[in-house]
């Protein structure tokens, strides 16, 4: 339950077209914005505003899209609530670290290939939101010692399931696409299954925490 006397979460709402509010709840993508998003997500689940079609999160903003011509004149407000530590949401994905740019990342960072693998699989990542393509997770948590610039010229085709590093971000390609990230490995489970029900069509969900586990190969 939301106590009306509790503190308001500081937000800034911008009207977005006829049917939506864009609510900014943070200015940086960090642990605090991740926690604020979790609070807002919980409040929307417990107490959804009338006619809300969907809440779509990004790092620092949530888009509240309403059914046609049902957008309220004032944006919904949110409250500071206790943080919940939900360790059950840590997901582990096996990665075979045999990507074609593994050497490039190691060379760029002055590490050995084994050290790159060790550091990439030791970190805890957070799924801030899904977007761009179905099931694509926007993650935070890549250690600074692994940040590596994108390729000068993007590859025209990267296989689905490829794990990459692009600048300060790491991620997994859900569908075969063009891309400029350094490919360091691959996973064997699909990130997106278009034939599955909506609540299980993506391997990861916003709010999840994620660890990669290095495996020598997929049997």
């Amino acid at each position: 339950m939301i106590d009306s006397s509790s503190d308001r979460l500081s937000t800034h709402a911008i009207r977005y077209g006829r049917d939506a509010w864009l609510v900014e709840f943070a200015t940086e993508a960090d642990d605090e914005s991740f926690a604020s998003a979790a609070m807002i997500r919980r409040q929307l689940e417990q107490n959804p505003p009338p006619h809300l079609r969907e809440a779509i999160f990004a790092y620092t903003r949530v888009l509240l899209e309403f059914e046609p011509e049902q957008c309220p004149p004032l944006a919904p407000e949110f409250f500071l609530t206790e943080r919940q530590n939900d360790s059950a949401r840590i997901k582990i994905i096996d990665v075979c670290y045999d990507g074609e740019d593994l050497q490039r990342v190691a060379r760029h960072r002055g590490l050995t290939v084994d050290e790159v693998i060790e550091k990439h699989s030791a970190a805890l990542y957070r799924v801030h939101f899904l977007g761009f393509a179905p099931g694509f997770p926007y993650l935070s948590g890549l250690p600074a010692c692994l940040h590596t610039p994108r390729l000068d010229s993007p590859r025209t085709r990267i296989a689905a399931g490829s794990v990459g590093i692009g600048g300060g971000q790491t991620g997994i390609y859900p569908l075969p696409t063009a891309g400029g990230w350094n490919i360091i490995g691959r996973i064997s489970v699909p990130l997106f299954d278009p034939s599955a029900p909506l609540d299980s069509c993506t391997l990861l969900q916003a709010g999840d925490e994620l660890k990669f586990r290095a495996v020598p190969s997929f049997s």
Binding site: E54, I56, L63, L130, G131, G135, F136, L198, C201, A206
Partner: peptide
């Protein structure tokens, strides 16, 4: 299929 953007769809 409106209302599925949170999944990237």
């Amino acid at each position: 299929r409106p209302g599925r953007k949170a999944f990237g769809i």
